[in-house]
């Protein structure tokens, strides 16, 4: 057990206190992460939003599309639990905001998962294979980089339609480029390590080496980047929904709510301000957590 004083600051995590028991890299990282106040606070806030996103759609008495005829475009009020007011059609914004949270967060996480799988596989293969094929693979990444992701996503969504699953796949299929670069860089140095050579000497197949030795050791910087990719993907989905190319009725997402709020901004500013605030807070939280993880997982960089 770490004494409480040791957990309180980054100096202790730096290894100043003598520790009789060995600590793993991950335990170290967790201690350092806990010392990062903004990241810890963000974790709690994000956890609360995620919990509400899970619970509100299930248990809230006003559902997503119940129309409150007496409260059309009503500002926030305590009547009928309409805490966030209602939209043009008298639908409860509290319920809609957290339905939107559910979809925005789900899209953020799942698209990142798709990007993670593609990016890690592509980067590890390009780095491990090396040579001309590896270089060509990375040249393709460079080329795709030259156009902003949103344009490719819009093409994909236009072409393949904007059903739910396809939006996940489309955003994920575009946002893997940076991950591929990070993993390739890591792989290039890892593949020269002795344990990889010994694995090769022991006759392990290339896929096994990649899965067992390369990817687990390259994952540190990847995790930090992933927490930054989730908010990027949430924004991409919001852009799509805002432009009318994202999720469609009856579903809703923060981008869609903001788009509907923007139309009514003169009469009902809360329709824009509430979902926009939740979106902004969520983005901030992910950024702080990403910073915290980067500091925690990269001991070389600890001096900052």
């Amino acid at each position: 057990m770490t004494p409480p004083s040791a957990a309180s600051g980054e100096t202790a995590a730096g290894g100043g206190a003598p520790d009789p028991q060995g600590r793993s890299l991950w335990q170290d990282a967790i201690t350092r992460f806990r010392g990062h106040r903004a990241a810890m606070a963000s974790t709690w806030v994000l956890g609360a939003i995620a919990l509400l996103a899970i619970l509100v759609p299930e248990f809230w008495p006003n559902s997503l599309d119940d129309v409150n005829w007496d409260y059309l475009e009503s500002p926030p009020t305590t009547d009928n639990l309409l805490w966030f007011g209602t939209d043009v059609n008298g639908r409860d914004m509290f319920s809609r905001t957290f339905h939107g949270a559910r979809i925005s967060l789900a899209i953020g996480v799942l698209t990142t998962l798709v990007a993670l799988i593609i990016g890690v596989a592509y980067g590890a293969i390009a780095g491990y294979r090396g040579g001309l094929p590896g270089d060509l693979m990375m040249r393709l990444v460079d080329v795709l980089y030259s156009l902003p992701a949103l344009f490719f996503v819009i093409i994909l969504v236009t072409v393949f339609g904007n059903s739910f699953l396809l939006i996940f796949l489309c955003i994920g299929a575009v946002e893997w480029l940076t991950l591929a670069r990070i993993v390739r860089g890591q792989t290039l140095s890892i593949k020269e390590k002795e344990y990889v050579q010994s694995a090769r000497a022991a006759g392990l197949s290339t896929p096994a080496i990649l899965l067992k030795y390369i990817v687990p050791n390259a994952i540190g910087p990847v995790i930090a980047y992933v927490t930054l990719l989730i908010p990027i993907n949430i924004i991409v989905e919001s852009y799509l929904s805002f432009l009318g190319l994202g999720v469609q009725e009856p579903y809703t997402s923060w981008g869609r709510l903001i788009s509907q709020g923007a139309d009514e901004i003169g009469n009902a500013p809360w329709l824009l301000i509430i979902p926009a605030s939740f979106l902004a807070v969520t983005l901030f939280c992910f950024n702080f957590i990403g910073d915290g993880l980067r500091d925690a997982l990269d001991p070389k960089d600890r001096s900052r």
Binding site: I235, S238, Y239, G255, S259, A276, L279, A280
Partner: peptide, 21 residues
């Protein structure tokens, strides 16, 4: 910091609300 984190589709309607309306 806010300018970096808040997307344009939020700031644009807010600017419209304030300076336009």
């Amino acid at each position: 910091m806010a300018g970096v984190a808040i997307p344009t589709f939020v700031t644009a309607p807010l600017l419209t609300l304030f300076f336009g309306l």
